[in-house]
Design a protein around this nucleic acid. Structure first.
Lengths: 400, 400
DNA sequence: TACTATTACTTACACGATGTAATTATACGG
DNA sequence: CCGTATAATTACATCGTGTAAGTAATAGTA
């Protein structure tokens, strides 16, 4: 019988990794930071902070600012996150578009590349991904940073530790060993993860996350998905499909239906679903070809202009999005709910109304924000994951 | 400005705690266990395992079995979780009943005590809790174990680290510093937590949890609640109100209602809600006083006897419970969903039908089980928390 | 300009933890 | 009874943190 055990052990070197991770995280979030301040806040002795900082400087994660800070007498030497210490490649592998970026570890994009409507699948998609990465590798890097790793967000179920894409319908990939292939091709550390998971990490590190430990990112685009940051750490679920909120049910009748490609909630509040409902409303009053071109964006524009037909569509979207957020918040009690994806560009219409509905029901309302990274969220999360991977990120917690 | 940082640091002693926790957890789940086996599985050197085991034996958490195991040549000395090494007091503080138990750390009850319909609130409730604890302290302990701590599960929102009951309507406690009061009174380490959270931990340690790292416990009783174990660790949420699933919404109309005491889902699938609906069905066909006595149990009994009226009530319960489980699983992707609370005694009726509904919708179905601890779940979780607290439980994780 | 007080940093060393390797103990099987 | 294999023990190297004492920097002050 296989033994059952859940918790891992650590060595002295890993203890250092835990502490190094905490210091790096502190500096990233609080640049510029002083050693003595960190020693105080992080409850480490000054010599330990010194040693860790020396290591971080040596490895290019952190650097002295040159500036010194007055705090009573001898000035503190200030340190900052060394954004340009390393370069990283992140790719958001969409079903219809691919978006790749070469960026520094501060999340500043050096060079980016979009392929719209690539229309590929299977091996052709892989070839296109390789081409994008190659171009980004070749892009000029003013400060001469080395590329430290590649992370890819895939639209579908992934098994992140193994780096396998289990099932990505739009690319027609099944059990696709993407990480292994990329590592062999580029000889760099690679991470493969779900696109929405990475987007959530991106917002935590560089976007609307703002130091919160419990974050839900809801993306409303072609489909609907959620990324969960729980107690500071990305949560993937038992079979790595946590956050597949497209399948959420909002009424009893939905129990009797079948959902092959699109889930119940997805068919209502995704961009696709919104456009679909608009077509039903406008059927007959517009020519067929115009009807086919309607997007969610058009619906919100019409709503802003006060066109009557859009009213019901937007109302329904507001209601079902509210139900989803209420149910997610009820279950998870996050500090922050971030709205992302294409539809979030219409947040001016949605957000105030959703907020009102939520406050009406929930005793404790999470903060509701719009993604600040937009379509770059996944790529930013990719950068975060490369930092996790290459800086040996460990975290420790005490229970009870 | 307050610095932002999320992750803690550890010292050499805390590294030992991480490893000690892993070893203790291994032995608890795999008694009897051999040192050399643990060294292999946990990736620790044998000397380290030896030292940790010596410490655990000395402190009474573990003991040699005396039995030896053959594995090719020299026999292994087997160790087991020392159930009787310590005694612990756990109390489930219900709104109508209080249930306290003196148990060993293996979750075996030495002495238990129920007070039904105590009808107290405020300071009187505290006095009754103290009386229960005192009686349990005085109960004979054959093996002479010392009581190591007290944990209390409260029916309401708690702030567990501080041990404050924020709001428990049935006891009329607000911002009640329970932990502080108990520690002063009994001079023992005390833990205060939400009753459902503790029940989830109880099932993880001693019940249906079975080594799973991602568990959702749904309790259906007077109200409805959920306890979440995420990546092996109890998750409480940003304001410690994760899992308050009584408020889950199942249709659009519910958005416009007000929920003061009972949430939307709660008013349908809780024991109270089931009985209430049965009363509506039977109004007129039964005398008023008989009607008032109907319980959820009666409804399920009638269903088993094939009485027509009960059909609709049970169907509705099945459907809304299914929706709740589907939505929770969609979001969290747990390995295991456990049904607990009074209504779970009718799981023979509910479970097969719920299972069928779930499988129809979800691509990946979590295992569905009935609580094996029943009304003792909270108390068992209380025991687990005392072990966490008094054995200095730490866990470490690597990201990416 | 020198002295003082104060805070930042450095160094030396103690301590606590893990790991490796050599040694001893135990038990089966021929 | 001995050989072999595995378990447990011991001694010691290594790696990490912490404490304490010493050095450096700097504003204020005499």
């Amino acid at each position: 019988m296989m033994p059952k055990y859940v918790f891992r052990t650590i060595t002295a070197t890993e203890m250092r990794s835990v502490n190094r991770s905490a210091v790096l995280d502190y500096i990233r979030r609080n640049s510029p930071a002083a050693r003595s301040m960190m020693a105080h806040d992080l409850k480490l002795s000054l010599p330990t902070v010194m040693r860790i900082v020396d290591e971080l400087i040596e490895k290019g994660w952190v650097r002295p600012t040159g500036v010194k800070e007055w705090s009573g007498s001898r000035r503190r030497d200030l340190l900052e996150y060394h954004k340009d210490g390393h370069a990283v490649i992140g790719v958001d592998l969409g079903g219809t578009k691919m978006f790749g970026a070469l960026a520094n570890i501060g999340g500043e994009i050096i060079s980016e590349l979009t392929v719209n409507g690539h229309g590929t699948s299977g091996e052709a998609s892989y070839a296109m991904l390789v081409e994008i990465v190659e171009k980004l590798c070749a892009a000029p890097r003013a400060r001469g940073q080395k590329i430290r790793g590649i992370a890819v967000g895939a639209p579908g179920v992934t098994r992140a530790p193994a780096g396998i894409v289990e099932w990505a319908p739009s690319l027609n990939w099944r059990e696709y060993p993407l990480k292994e292939k990329l590592e062999r091709q580029f000889r760099l550390p690679c991470v493969v993860d779900n696109d929405v998971n990475l987007a959530a990490l991106g917002e935590q590190w560089f976007g609307a996350g703002d130091g919160a430990s419990n974050i839900v990112l809801i993306t409303l685009g072609t489909g609907v998905g959620a990324g969960l940051i729980i107690d500071g750490v990305l949560y993937r679920g038992h079979t790595e499909s946590a956050g597949e909120v497209g399948l959420l049910l909002s009424n009893r009748a939905e129990l009797d239906q079948q959902y092959d490609k699109f889930g119940a909630l997805e068919s209502i509040i995704s961009g696709t679903g919104i456009a679909e409902r608009a077509r039903t409303c406008l059927a007959g009053s517009l020519p067929e070809d115009r009807l086919a071109q309607i997007t969610a964006q058009d619906v919100f524009d019409a709503y802003r202009r006060g066109e009557a037909w859009s009213r019901a569509v937007v109302d329904e979207t507001v209601d079902y999005l509210s139900i989803a957020i209420i149910n997610i918040s009820t279950l998870l009690d996050p500090e922050l709910v971030i709205l992302g994806g294409g539809v979030s560009e219409s947040a001016d219409v949605l957000l105030p109304r959703v907020q009102a509905r939520i406050q009406n029901i929930l005793p404790k309302t999470p903060t509701l924000k719009v993604s600040t990274l937009g379509r770059r969220a996944t790529v930013m999360g990719a950068i975060a994951q490369v930092v996790h991977l290459t800086s040996d990120y460990y975290v420790a917690r005490k229970l009870a």
